[in-house]
Design a protein around this nucleic acid. Structure first.
Lengths: 216, 216
DNA sequence: GAAAAATATGGAGGTAGTTTCCGTTTGTCA
DNA sequence: TGACAAACGGAAACTACCTCCATATTTTTC
């Protein structure tokens, strides 16, 4: 699945140069403020070369994203092998917040890309989600965590945290979200979540009708 | 603050036409797939007219967004006046999910706009956040909800839900997130959240270092 | 109710970012 | 070392965005 074509020496070199510059800009958060052409200029290659290696902005982003995700997944596996399931999950999630905090530009860029719906990050995201799924599954198996809430919900929360990077008290709020998720996740009181059935929305008036009196 | 200038009759008409078409496209989720010029064409006005009324894409979006937010805020106030605080909060949050479910294109569009960092939706977002803040504050005052987690965390979770609109099991997962947040929010077991201090990240290795062995 | 003044219109054309295309250069293999 | 393939780079075509102003419409004035 990895690199099927030998790729010529200079091509390899140019590709690296492009990636290096991209990562730099990516991390600085300037990814979208820059003309796509200029990546070429900055990396010291021609426009054509840039386009041959990375047909679109997203393709370039994807390549950078890949490495980051790999790092995070490794960490997840490592935690899972080292700590009790529940603790591993907690540590990983808080670690994610720390990671985003340390790489805000990157978080910003990724959030934008996701929202743009490019779909280029799909593979990487899937890998990350798998890691979270494993962590949650282990915790469920331990009986430390409820079994009626999938990892998808956790992913959504993480997504929200990443997307809101520019809020004033970001770090504190982000940690709060994780706290809420973890506390909510801990199997303890089935009774408390009385009305909040998780499957069907059987809440009174769960639907808000759009009612502004506009001529159509 | 509202409309200081009388605005000529035909201008008013064109403005409405533009808004109507925009809302339509907005809701269908095609907002970004369309050349900005074409809004004019579609609404039956000239390019210049479009630009005079709405200098940017974001300005147009903002105008549409405004109404939607107003609807939601009204609903929040109404719930708060009708139900016990905790229930009002729960109902509102589940209602938000229902709303997004019923207006997916809109949710998608908004998520994209937020991520793009346009800032045009700032005012509307602030209004919505205020509504949530009020709901949470009331619940805290009732003693039904912990006081060490601000409304900002809830906003982040909502943000995540909106941003992830395109996931396969969206509705179920979205409801799960709300469930987690609500359960996590309910004041009950201070002991359970042992290691998850919400302010300072004093988690072991909360920072993940970027380590891939790449030449730089 | 007609002329003057103010306001708004629409689309042709300028501007800028993106992408393709192809003659030239560089690397690889025998 | 020669021949072939792979890759380069930047000029030029394309596309979307936005401005500008001669013309048209509405409102005000007398």
């Amino acid at each position: 699945m990895t690199a099927a074509k030998p790729l010529r020496a200079d091509a390899q070199r140019n590709r690296e140069a492009l990636l290096a510059k991209a990562r730099e800009v990516f991390d600085a958060g300037d990814f979208f403020d820059l003309r796509f052409d200029d990546f070429a200029r900055l990396a010291g290659v021609g426009t054509g070369t840039l386009y041959r290696h990375f047909p679109t902005r997203e393709a370039l982003a994807e390549a950078v994203y890949h490495e980051e995700v790999a790092t995070l997944c490794d960490r997840a596996r490592q935690l899972q092998a080292t700590l009790p399931a529940e603790e591993a999950l907690a540590t990983f999630l808080h670690g994610m917040v720390g990671y985003m905090d340390a790489h805000q530009g990157l978080a910003r860029t990724l959030a934008t890309l996701m929202a743009t719906g490019s779909g280029a990050l799909a593979e990487g995201s899937r890998a990350l989600e798998q890691a979270v799924t494993d962590l949650v599954a282990a915790a469920v198996k331990d009986g430390a965590v409820r079994d009626d809430v999938g990892a998808g919900a956790v992913m959504m929360a993480l997504h929200g945290i990443g997307a809101a990077h520019d809020r004033p008290g970001w770090r504190a709020e982000a940690d709060s979200v994780i706290t809420l998720v973890l506390d909510g996740l801990r199997r303890s009181h089935q009774s408390a979540s009385s009305a909040s059935g998780s499957r069907k929305a059987r809440h009174p008036a769960a639907d808000v009708e759009r009612n502004s009196g506009r001529a159509r």
